[in-house]
Every structure is written in structure tokens, then in C-alpha cells.
């Protein structure tokens, strides 16, 4: 588990608040969908900060990609989304995480529940599903504030439209305009009788509420994997 040097190869705007960084990491060992990396930035005077970011790219992809959402007054995200450019470097450790992982070799349906930037690791799972031609019944329920905040909007629309359910919490449209609740979860499915692997990711409050609702609907706690972004 060593710290490697990551170099930014390219950066791509996803939304007004989020960018994807394409990274070159020598001897990158590959990763599983859902895993993340720890990154460490060092200032000129030696001051350091560490943060973790989920890997957005599928294991099958040509390059390692992270999607960073800018947090106002953040310690690290403003640098990554506004200052960092091609050629810039930081340290990276990983991939890490064995609990919040989906592999195409796993059989059974999959329910992905994302709150805002919680979509990032689930996008790696969706991309992995597509790249492997997996026949698993995979569904995404995404909760975002407005259409403009939806990460990977074009890709979701072109590649995953039939698998995807959207609810917006701060915009009226002809779809759902409310927080994820039991009715929405029931309509999205799959139900607990199908024993889906469930992955819930996003802010802590979102994850805990969604997980609670899923268990109340009958899903086994052990089948509901959670990743709280805090």
C-alpha cells in the first residue's frame, strides 16, 4: 500500500460544480467498481492535506478517472476543480475498499441509490456493467437537486436511460420532485424477494435514511451496502 504519484492528464467539466480528472498513475494495479483512492496534496511549505475520492471509471476503462465536486470553502476540492491543470501532480494511494464493490461476476439484480455526488462510485458500477455486457438487472435511482446538478447527464441519457430513475429535490418537472421515500423505492424495485445487491452512496443523512427505508421494505441489512460521504 504505497503512495504513488498521480499526474493530471486531462480535466473535463461535468457540471458547474464538478470536474472529472483523468490521471496517469505509473504501475496502476487496476481496481474494482466502487473502490476509491486516498489522495494527498503537498503545499510548497510542506503542509499536507488528505482526502478520499471514489473512482468514476470502470475497471475496464483505459484511464483512471476521479470526479470531484467542489465544496465551497473546501480544503482540497477547490484546488482540484479550479486550480489544478494538466501536468499537475499529487500523491495517490489505492485502490481501497472491499465492502462497497460490485463485480460483473456477481449474479443477481442490483439496485444503485445515489444522492448527489454519491453517483460517482455507482457510475463506475454502471460503466462496468456496460463494458462487460452484463445481463444483470441493474437499476439506478438518483436523487439530485436540479437537472443541472446531475453528473454524467449526457452519458446517463444515452447509455443508461432505461435503467435510470430520477428525483429532483429543488426543481419541478414532469418526474418526481421530492426526497427518496418508500413509494419511490417500491416503484423502482427490485423488491426484497428478488434479493438484489443494493448500493447506497451520498451524504450521510441521505444514505442512512435510504438504508432505513430499504430495510423497512424488507431488504436484509447485509444486502444494503452503504458509503457515506459525510
Amino acid at each position: 500500500m504505497t503512495w504513488r504519484v498521480a499526474t493530471i492528464r486531462e480535466s473535463r467539466v461535468e457540471t458547474p460544480q464538478a470536474k472529472t480528472l483523468v490521471l496517469d498513475v505509473p504501475d496502476w494495479p487496476g481496481h474494482l467498481a466502487g473502490q476509491h483512492v486516498d489522495i494527498r496534496l503537498t503545499a510548497e511549505d510542506g503542509y499536507q492535506s488528505e482526502r478520499s475520492y471514489s473512482i468514476a471509471s470502470a475497471p475496464d476503462a483505459a484511464a483512471l478517472e476521479l470526479t470531484i465536486e467542489r465544496i465551497d470553502d473546501g480544503e482540497v476540492s477547490p484546488w482540484l476543480t479550479e486550480e489544478a491543470r494538466e501536468g499537475d501532480q499529487f500523491e495517490l494511494r489505492g485502490p481501497v475498499g472491499g465492502y462497497f464493490v460490485w463485480k460483473a461476476s456477481l449474479s443477481g439484480p442490483v439496485l444503485l441509490v445515489a444522492g448527489g455526488s454519491g453517483l460517482v462510485p455507482l457510475m463506475a458500477m454502471l460503466r462496468h456493467h456496460r463494458a462487460t455486457g452484463s445481463q444483470a438487472d441493474m437499476r439506478l435511482l438518483l436523487s439530485a437537486r436540479t437537472h443541472e446538478d446531475v453528473l454524467y447527464r449526457r452519458e446517463l441519457d444515452s447509455s443508461f436511460r432505461d435503467m435510470m430513475y430520477l428525483t429532483l429535490t429543488r426543481e419541478e418537472w414532469d418526474g418526481w420532485s421530492r426526497r427518496v421515500d418508500a413509494d419511490i423505492l417500491r416503484e423502482v424495485g427490485p423488491g426484497p424477494e428478488e434479493h438484489p445487491h443494493v448500493y447506497v452512496c451520498g451524504p450521510t443523512a441521505f444514505v442512512e435514511e435510504a438504508a432505513r427505508l430499504l430495510v423497512e421494505l424488507g431488504h436484509l441489512p447485509a444486502a444494503v451496502h452503504t458509503e457515506r460521504f459525510g
Partner: peptide, 13 residues
């Protein structure tokens, strides 16, 4: 010696 992340200084005063 870790690489310097050019222009990074964090939120320190």
C-alpha cells in the same frame, strides 16, 4: 520527497 501540488495551500490562514 513528495511532489508539490502547484498552487495548493489549503484553507489555512
Amino acid at each position: 520527497m513528495p511532489p508539490i501540488s502547484r498552487g495548493f495551500h489549503g484553507r489555512r490562514q
